[in-house]
């Protein structure tokens, strides 16, 4: 078990969200989409230029930019 940044996760890797570091609009947007502490996520893929990243959560897929992923810390195996 270790805690890494969402940006550092590999494609197909799964993990549990440990904390969200952002506040204000970005933090609200992240949480509104269900990215909250304790949720399981799986990195689904990356865009051709490696950014943005797409991930799977609660049965749907969402995408976010790497600099937004920086605010999300994930516990991985």
């Amino acid at each position: 078990m270790k805690i890494i940044n969402l940006r550092q996760m590999n494609v197909d890797q799964t993990g549990i969200i440990n904390s969200i570091k952002a506040n204000g609009e970005l933090g609200q947007r992240i949480r509104d989409m269900g990215l909250i502490k304790g949720k399981e996520i799986k990195v689904q893929g990356r865009a051709p230029l490696n950014d943005p990243v797409s991930l799977r959560i609660m049965g749907f897929t969402l995408m976010l930019r790497n600099n937004e992923a920086d605010h999300i810390e994930v516990e991985v195996q």
Partner: peptide, 9 residues
């Protein structure tokens, strides 16, 4: 603007 968007099926 935050980019976080759904990739709908």
């Amino acid at each position: 603007t935050p980019f976080i968007m759904e990739l709908p099926p």
